[in-house]
């Protein structure tokens, strides 16, 4: 066994950060702003100022085959560095630069051992729960339209 994971974060920590970033990305700008206000915003500098650009979304032929380009989405991203050294990133659909900046600061704070728990409990968990509720409502509403078709046999009466 000579192979090691080429990252300074443990495997589960890595995926936890991805999940958090996804939760922040899925939140509305208003939700992020409201949560950001609740924080004692730390000192930070911009590594990459909020920037809006395009990502070309790909699909696959037939669903599982070779990739093709479907069309673009607008994406806004931002990278910040806290005075304490942590670098935070944000990527999300849309064009809201304030959301990108605030999300990047939250991501950076989450990486700081003394702030992680607070970020998770105060921001990530409630946002994730609200998003899960919305998704569950869609599922339940869709479920109510489940259909069973019966084939009528021709000439049979």
């Amino acid at each position: 066994m000579t192979e090691t994971t080429p990252t300074n974060l443990p495997e589960d920590g890595h995926s936890a950060r991805q999940k958090n970033m996804a939760t922040l990305a899925a939140a509305t700008p208003a939700d992020i702003a409201e949560n950001f206000r609740k924080l004692d915003a730390p000192a930070y500098e911009l590594v990459r100022q909020p920037e809006t650009g395009l990502v070309m979304v790909r699909g696959r032929m037939g669903g599982t085959g070779s990739p093709f380009n479907l069309g673009e989405v607008t994406v806004t991203r931002c990278v910040v560095r806290l005075a304490s050294g942590e670098t935070g990133s944000a990527y999300s659909l849309g064009r809201n630069k304030e959301k990108a900046l605030q999300s990047a600061v939250i991501d950076a704070l989450w990486q700081r051992a003394d702030a992680r728990e607070q970020i998770e409990e105060m921001i990530i968990a409630p946002l994730a729960a609200a998003q899960e509720t919305t998704t569950e409502t869609v599922r339940e509403e869709t479920e109510a339209t489940r259909v069973n078709f019966f084939t009528m046999v021709r000439g049979d009466n």
Binding site: V57, G59, T74
Partner: peptide, 15 residues
């Protein structure tokens, strides 16, 4: 869209 930079390509969406 021509006014925006291109960041890259997404991973193929999984339908």
């Amino acid at each position: 869209r021509t006014t925006l930079p291109r960041f890259g390509y997404s991973q193929p969406v999984d339908t």
